[in-house]
Design a protein around this nucleic acid. Structure first.
Length: 594
RNA sequence: GCCACCUUAGCUCAGAUGGUAGAGCAGCUCACUCGUAAUGAGCAGGUCGAGGGUUCAAGUCCCUCAGGUGGCUCCA
């Protein structure tokens, strides 16, 4: 079963994880862990009846799970924070205490969840950490005293299952963060607010880019004219670059007979993600496609292939549909219908490394074009469950590795994290507030060529099985658009901006001149003129709010002197220019993609 | 899907303890003809997500459903 790359993800049921990579200067794990104990102590003081779950430090802070019938309220959080401050002030020593299991059981007799954990521990000796009246079964390590925790904040309340098992008790989880300095905490909170302001769902509505109609299609995207023009620019650019780089474009249907997916294995392995079957009469059943590769394979198999044709590179902006569960849908980032910037490469083993190098170059070229300059690259190797021979896996992994090395790319290895049908490279990008997103993925597939009996005739006249590479660069247009909105905070660079210039006449006697100017600019740019009966201040404010990159103001002076006053979004007045200068300026900026 | 919370005008949101709805923005009309981030006035706009229940009376309380939001990987 080939994976379906939609932003580097396959079929999974979780929300897309946004890797919030706020720069945290030191290793805070110990610090956060102790803060979580302080929180648990505060909760125990305020709500003595709650039962303790687990409370680890995590990537960005800490949490503690409690068993409590009613959920915590925001007011509870304030009370808990107050109590935590007291505990910090009381400055308890944090002591490690070793106990044997029997003693431990006695201590934990009223903590059913802790007892469960205790039972799973193999060692005879277990450790407790004690601060004041609070004692917790815990491996540590911890700070020496509660007074060492300086600045903290409880961030959110949620529920989670005990042991992440939906059949088990629902726990109440409180998340928080803490730092040594007030400045770090403030910066972190500022970062969270900044991220909120960039939310593509809010900007998408404000800037009239897209919408989702919850009643008629949760998870299905309506691209409004302003979003659609951006999409068109991306698509045109994408196609042009692919054609220049030896790819051919293909188009394939949105539906196909169910037998295709029976063969690919989707109906058995991924049935949860398929939209229900369509009966089309005479017992024929069709499915909406959850991925493109089986179609590309049909094109490959439509006739006999020679080694002379390889490598074959087929690209398609292919729209696929997957029935994601209601709770996981999220704006443009997790949807039910999306367009993958998909491509499949069929090549010989000898060509593999070069093909991978080419893909990497292409990935970097695209990501740079969209303003992403920082990357983290991951190489995922053979998992426990896999298809194909170990020899092939090693060869393919080596090819991926060699390609990365020859490109001088630093990468991290994710051992055993490959998909079962082949190893892969994932590339994560950092946006301008340091969040990481995964879009690009390059996956080698040993399974599909065999399953669909792909072959070519080699130079000795023998049948050979080609190697197949799945790759996506942007992931999906929907998701990538969402990321772009957040990355640019809606301030699209000139080449992408839906409306590049707006002409603002000061009074209505300037309208005709402005209309004439629009006609001239229209040839090269996306331009509009604001003819509303409003004051110039209002027109400027609206253009600024709508994030139009450039404004040209036309009044008596401009008409008399035949000069154009140019204003740049968020920057203010640039000065007066003649038309040629402005055209040149815009063209240079468009080419630079900045 | 599970837990919690939310759903009131196109948008953002007010509407203690039940007594059949308000504001700002947007829209429309009119006046103003204006110089670098909101001119003023007027008008119009809602079966309060859907269905059911309690009540003399439900936006408000209860139940069901739909949708949205935050989570549901980190493990003593």
């Amino acid at each position: 079963m080939p994976d379906c790359r939609s932003g580097g993800r396959g079929f999974e049921s979780r929300r897309p994880r946004v890797f919030i990579n706020f720069l945290i200067k030191m290793d805070y794990k110990k610090y956060w862990h102790t803060t979580s104990h302080i929180m648990a102590q505060a909760v125990k003081r305020l709500f003595p009846y709650v039962k303790l779950g687990t409370g680890p430090a995590i990537d960005k802070g800490f949490y503690y799970d409690f068993y409590k019938e009613e959920p915590f309220t925001p007011q509870d959080l304030i009370k808990i924070e107050e109590e935590m401050k007291k505990i910090i002030k009381e400055n308890y020593k944090v002591e490690k205490i070793e106990k044997n299991k029997e003693e431990a059981r006695q201590i934990l007799k009223n903590e059913p969840f802790k007892l469960e954990i205790l039972d799973e521990i193999k060692n005879e000796k277990v450790s407790f950490y004690k601060q004041g009246e609070f004692i917790d079964l815990c491996e540590g390590p911890h700070l020496d005293s509660t007074g060492e925790v300086k600045y903290f904040k409880l961030l959110s309340i949620s529920s989670s299952y005990w042991k992440a098992d939906e059949n088990r008790e629902s726990m109440q989880r409180i998340y928080g963060i803490s730092f040594e300095t007030k400045q770090e905490l403030e910066e972190y909170i500022k970062f969270l607010e900044e991220a909120k302001q960039r939310d593509h769902r809010i900007l998408g509505k404000k800037l009239d880019l897209f919408s989702i109609n919850p009643e008629y299609g949760p998870g299905l995207i309506f691209w409004h004219p302003k979003g659609a023009i951006i999409r068109k620019i991306i698509e045109d650019f994408w196609k042009e670059i692919h054609l220049k780089n030896g790819y051919e474009l293909v188009y394939t249907p949105h539906i196909a007979n169910i037998s295709l997916w029976e063969k690919s294995g989707h109906t058995s392995f991924y049935s949860d993600f398929l939209f229900p079957e369509m009966e089309v009469g005479e017992g024929k059943v069709y499915l909406l496609k959850p991925m493109n590769c089986p179609f590309h394979i049909q094109i490959y198999n439509s006739r006999l292939r020679s080694y002379k044709e390889l490598p074959i590179r087929w690209a398609e902006l292919g729209t696929v549909y997957r029935f994601e569960k209601p709770g996981v849908l999220h704006g443009l980032l997790r949807v039910r219908g999306f367009t993958q910037d998909d491509a499949h490469i069929f090549c010989t083993p000898n060509q593999l490394e070069q093909e991978i190098c080419n893909i990497i170059d292409l990935v970097y070229f695209f990501l740079k074009s969209f303003g992403f300059e920082e990357y983290r690259v991951f190489l995922s190797t053979r998992p426990e469950k896999f298809v194909g021979t170990i020899e092939n896996w090693e060869k393919a992994t080596t090819s991926l590795e060699n390609a990365l090395k020859s490109k001088n790319i630093n990468y991290e290895i994710d051992p055993g994290e490959g998909v079962f049908y082949g190893p892969k490279i994932d590339i994560k990008i950092k946006d301008c507030i340091n969040r990481e997103w995964q879009c690009s993925t390059i996956q080698i597939d040993f399974n599909i060529p065999e399953k669909f009996n792909l072959n070519y005739i080699d130079d000795k006249g023998k049948f050979k099985t080609p190697i197949m590479i799945h790759r996506a660069i942007l992931g999906s247009l929907e998701r990538f658009f969402g990321i772009l909105i957040e990355h640019y905070k809606g301030n699209f660079p000139l080449w992408l901006a839906p409306e590049q210039v707006r002409i603002l006449p000061v009074a209505d006697r300037h309208n005709q001149f402005s209309i004439n100017l629009k006609e001239k600019l229209k040839e090269n740019f996306r331009v509009d003129v604001d003819l509303r009966n409003e004051k110039i201040n209002k027109k400027i404010k609206d253009a600024e709010d709508e994030k139009v990159p450039y404004m040209i103001i036309i009044g008596d002076r401009e008409i008399r002197e035949n000069k154009l006053s140019l204003r740049k979004h968020t920057k203010g007045m640039l000065g007066e220019f003649n038309l040629d200068e402005i055209v040149k300026l815009f063209n240079e900026e468009i080419i630079s993609k900045k």
